[in-house]
Amino acid sequence: MICCLATVLLKCILYQRGRAAFAVVVTLALAGCLPARAQDTRLTIVKIADGIYVHFGNVALTTPGNAGDIANLGIVVGHDAVAVIDTGGSVAVGKALLAAVRGVTALPLRYVINTHEHPDHVFGNAALAGPGVTFVGHHNLPASLRAHGPFYLHSFRPALGDAAIGQVRLIPPALLVDGSKELDLGGRKLLLTAWPPAHSDCDLTVLDEQAHFLFAGDLVFLDHVPVIDGSLNGWLSLLPRLAALPADRVLPGHGQRIAPWPQALDDERRYLLSIQADARRMIAAGTPLAEAVPFIGRSERGRWQLFDDYNPRNATAAFSELEWE
């Protein structure tokens, strides 16, 4: 009934203004995999360094039109095997990611690393499952997916559409990271670190030790307002430890640029501190939650995309957490 036609276009573009660095851009058009209104899913990857490719998701909420392509994704190619970091917010995006991998290497996909539980990072998992593929995640990720997965499938149905939701399978990691763990792709090692509650309850970072390149997942937001679904205080206390990671550059979970490390944390830190200070002041003044929310983080409005979509819930989560300090 439905056939998928993938066309791969290769072209070179100049990457990074002021530098003579060239990047391979793979544009992949997936036609016919989605309902007509979903249009084609295109997945563009950018070569960051030898063996490292990234895809910048839209800075947007999930819609049928973007098929949940709203999170940044990574591909790392070693001498022996490939790892992908996150799988996008739908099986269509996951399929496009797999096609992008096939566009740059014939080596086997060995690891699918999920940086945390949120739908825009794990709903594409089913597209990448197969013989020889191991899913990797934070040791809390299986429990988080069990607890929240059914709600995500329900609550994202209006945003993704019935057909796309029907394809999603919640695949928990088989290889769990508690503390840190090294994955070897052959001549290329990835250091995975599991963190205490911050952005979520199951945040995991991936560091390419050779390229000094960090895949931060949603522990780093750039331009896209940070989202607090773990612990505000936990996140703030984590920032110095993250900053100490031996990286030169970072791919944030959201935000369409590669940024220098650890300066990439500056905007996020300022935002989180602002939320913390405002919430503490409101709580001390005895302001009820509902009345306090519009005032929490207000000074950050205009500095972030999607501020009005996420700031009120960040304010709510922060107030609820800090009330117990």
Binding site: Y152, F156, P197, D229, N233, W324
Partner: peptide
């Protein structure tokens, strides 16, 4: 309900 990533239940008790 806004949907989104904030599930209505079962967050681990921090601290």
């Amino acid at each position: 309900a806004s949907g989104g990533c904030s599930a209505p239940a079962l967050k681990p008790v921090a601290g």
